[in-house]
Every structure is written in structure tokens, then in C-alpha cells.
């Protein structure tokens, strides 16, 4: 006997993502889904965000890692609420994980939540978390060909950070090539150059964060 099913396999995640999104909207909170490969500097970029916007924005961080609490402890040491999610082998965060993390945050006291997704450029791109903006970090030590290799994530994001820009002269990273490739995928996306070590570009990063935190919900590019 044949049964017509016609059910979306990602329906559970999409429904929960929509609930998360609504919950944020009800409390007037924005949420950024920050994605990058392992070692691109996600935690350092978040720490720069905290340092440079904490006098204007009320922040919280959700840390996604396969194991350990290293990142959330580093954020808590800065007196910022941090929720650690350990995926125990899972390669991405899901909307259900974010829903339970939101349960542990007092949304009425926040303007902006930054999610540090699991270090990976493939899987996180397929799972909507209910965020209001998506951001990917590429670091100059990874090479300028990342958008060629992982086009989906570069196509989907609302902003891109090129991190470790202070190392540019030591790496074979062709910034013009990188920008051209990104333009072919996502023509209007802002590309911010940043160094967490010497502070280059932190002003632009701060302004982008402030705009994201005060603007209405940003429509996600699909």
C-alpha cells in the first residue's frame, strides 16, 4: 500500500526556528547566528563585540561546541551572560537547542544575542535557528578560496568578516580575489576587515552590530 506523505523533513526545525524568531520579536531582541570554520576567530570576534558595544547594548552569548565550556567561561569572565551548548558530536546547532538556551536567558533585559555556531562551514548553513541576522567569518590564514568551496554559506549571510587581517602580508590571501568571488554569490553583502589583535576594523564591526541590534528584524536571504 502506498501512502502519500508530502512532509518536509526539516519541518520540526523550521517550526521551532519560527517560534524562536517570534519569541525574540515579542521581547524586542535581535539574534545573530555567527558561523565560521574552526579557528577562524569566532570567540575573539565576539569578545571584541562585547568590549566595544557593552556600554550601548545589553548582550548575551550562546556558545555552541561539540565539547567543553572553554568559550562560555571566557565570555562569563567578561560579566556577560553565556549559555554553553554541547552538541556531543553534532556538527551544527538546531532550533530546538536554541529554544532551550533562550529559556535560560532573561530576554527582557537584552538587546542582542550572539550565537557562536559549531565550527563548520557546511552543516550550520542548512539549519535555521530563528536568528535575525547571519554572519560568517573567513580568516586570512584559511585562504581566499573559501567562498568557492563553501558557496552556500557565503550566499546566505547578511555580513562577512575577514578576520586576522593583521596577518595579510604573511599569507597568500588575495583580498581582491576573495571580494570578487563573494560579489558573484552575494552582491550587496557588507565585507568587514577585522583584526582582533591590533583592533583594525573594530569601529566598522561595532557600527554593524549597533545597526543590527536597533533595526527591525532583518529578512534572511534564502
Amino acid at each position: 500500500m502506498k501512502i502519500e506523505v508530502k512532509k518536509n523533513i526539516l519541518a520540526t526545525n523550521s517550526a521551532m526556528a519560527a517560534e524562536n524568531h517570534q519569541r525574540l520579536e515579542d521581547h524586542d531582541v535581535r539574534m545573530i547566528n555567527l558561523m565560521a570554520s574552526p579557528g577562524a576567530g569566532k570567540t575573539s570576534v565576539i569578545m571584541q563585540a562585547i568590549e566595544h558595544t557593552r556600554d550601548r547594548l545589553r548582550l548575551a552569548v550562546i556558545e555552541g561546541d561539540i565539547a567543553s565550556e572553554i568559550d562560555s567561561l571566557a565570555i562569563e569572565a567578561m560579566d556577560i551572560p553565556a549559555i554553553q551548548i554541547n552538541t556531543d558530536g553534532g556538527c551544527h546547532l538546531t532550533a530546538v537547542m536554541i529554544a532551550s538556551a533562550l529559556d535560560h536567558l532573561d530576554l527582557d533585559t537584552l538587546d542582542l544575542i550572539i550565537i557562536e555556531n559549531v565550527g563548520n562551514l557546511v552543516c550550520p548553513a542548512e539549519f535555521d535557528l530563528g536568528e535575525t541576522a547571519r554572519l560568517v567569518i573567513a580568516s586570512v590564514t584559511e585562504g581566499h578560496d573559501k567562498p568557492h568551496k563553501y558557496p552556500m554559506i557565503f550566499r546566505q549571510v547578511d555580513a562577512i568578516i575577514v578576520n586576522k587581517i593583521d596577518l595579510l602580508s604573511y599569507c597568500d590571501f588575495d583580498l581582491n580575489h576573495f571580494r570578487r568571488t563573494v560579489r558573484d554569490l552575494n552582491p550587496d553583502v557588507p565585507i568587514m576587515e577585522l583584526s582582533c589583535r591590533d583592533g583594525f576594523g573594530v569601529g566598522e564591526w561595532r557600527r554593524w552590530l549597533e545597526a543590527s541590534a536597533t533595526a527591525g528584524p532583518i529578512d534572511l536571504k534564502s
Binding site: K2, I3, V5, K7, I9, P187, S222
Partner: peptide, 17 residues
Amino acid sequence: PLYELKQGQELFIESIE
């Protein structure tokens, strides 16, 4: 390069026997 995807990212169960 600016285009809107109308179809191509679906994932669903059509039917079972």
C-alpha cells in the same frame, strides 16, 4: 548573479510503501 531561487533546496518525504 542576483537571482531568487524558486525551487532546488527542498527536502521532503514524498511517499512510503
